[in-house]
């Protein structure tokens, strides 16, 4: 999802949205979901789970594209995504922050 350059038809495409579910108490804090999320929608939370780890939290609520990569990587079955069948949001690339956009265009 980190494009070298923005595709020409970015604005016209409806992109699937995902809803991220985090089962906090299963997490052992390896950070793989955070590190490897292509949309960087996750970060370590400040809170402790009952095992004493910092589970991930969603930091970009509309960023998930339901690619399931966090779900595939998580060794603890602690995170998964499902298609968000609510309102189709704007294309995440089109709605990316200026900062991200400039990075994408770089």
């Amino acid at each position: 999802m980190k494009y070298w350059r923005e595709p020409l038809d970015t604005g016209e495409i409806d992109v699937v949205r995902g809803k991220v579910y985090i089962i906090k108490d299963r997490c052992k804090g390896c950070g793989y979901c955070i590190e490897f999320c292509p949309r960087e929608v996750l970060a370590f939370s400040k809170e402790f789970n009952k095992k004493g780890y910092h589970p991930p939290m969603l930091v970009k609520s509309d960023g998930c594209l339901n690619c399931h990569y966090c779900e595939l990587l998580c060794p603890e079955f602690a995170i998964y995504t499902v298609a968000d069948e609510g309102e189709a949001g704007p294309n995440p690339v089109a709605s990316a922050t200026e900062n991200q956009k400039s990075r994408l265009k770089a």
Binding site: R26, G31, C74, P75, E76, F77, Y80
Partner: peptide, 27 residues
């Protein structure tokens, strides 16, 4: 979790350490 029907959930958490890749491969 979409894999729960294939996991003996009563045995979770598993023994694999934080950061161990076995859980990922298993998944």
């Amino acid at each position: 979790h979409p894999l729960e029907d294939l996991i003996r959930m009563e045995r979770i958490p598993h023994i694999w350490c934080p950061g161990c890749g076995v859980g990922t491969v298993f998944s």
